[in-house]
Amino acid sequence: MEEKSKSLGDVTKNVHHVIQGEYFVSDDPSIVLTTILGSCVATCLCDPVARVGGINHFLLPNGDGKDGMEFRYGILSMELLVNGLLKMGASKSRLEAKIFGGAAMNNGLARIGESNSQFAVSYLSNENIKCLSKSLGGINARRVRYVPTTGQAQQMLVSEQSADELSSAKRLVKAEPDVTLF
C-alpha cells in the first residue's frame, strides 16, 4: 500500500514500504522507498544516469555455515535487485550503493547482524559495485528512506521498543530449490 510523504525534497512522494525478504525497483521519480531494519541489511542501488534504483531487505538464514546456503539467499536477494535494475535500463558498471542495517539487536542476533553486514560489503566489492556510504552495526534499529531515481537516502534510528518488535520479525523463508530437466 502506498501513502503520501513530504521529505527528501519538497515534492510530495508516494511511499512504498519494502519488507524483509522483498526487493523493489523503480524509475518513478515520485516514489520514495522505505524499510525498517534491525539485524537485516538493506542494499540501496541507483544508476544515476538511467535514473532507476531500488532496495532489497535481507536477513541471512542462521545456517551452520557448512554448506554455504545462508550466503546463497543473500546472493539471491542481491541478484534479484541487480537484475531488476538492469531490466529497467541500468548499467551494472554505473550502479552506486548505500547500505544500512546489521544491528546487534540482542545477544541472539548480534552475530547475524554482523554476518549480514559483512556479506553485503563483500558482495559489492566482489561485483565491483561502488559503495558510496554505509551505516552498519550498532545496537539500534534503523528506518531508511530512499529515492530510487536519485539515490538520496535518509536514516533515522528507531526506539528500543520498536527494535524489540523487529528482532522477533519472521526470518527469511527458504524456498525449495527448483530443478527442471526438459
Binding site: 554448506d67 546456503m69 546463497r72 539467499y73 546472493i75 539471491l76 541478484e79 524456498a175 530449490p177 527448483d178 530443478v179 527442471t180 530437466l181 526438459f182
Partner: peptide, 27 residues
C-alpha cells in the same frame, strides 16, 4: 522459451549443491 531454444534443463537459484551436481550427472 529456453526449452524451445534447446536448453536441457532449468535450475532456479539459490541452487542446492547436491541437486545441481545430480542434475549435471543425469544430463
Amino acid at each position: 522459451r529456453a526449452k524451445n531454444s534447446g536448453a536441457t534443463g532449468w535450475v532456479v537459484k539459490p541452487f542446492d549443491d547436491e541437486k545441481l551436481i545430480h542434475a549435471i550427472k543425469r544430463i
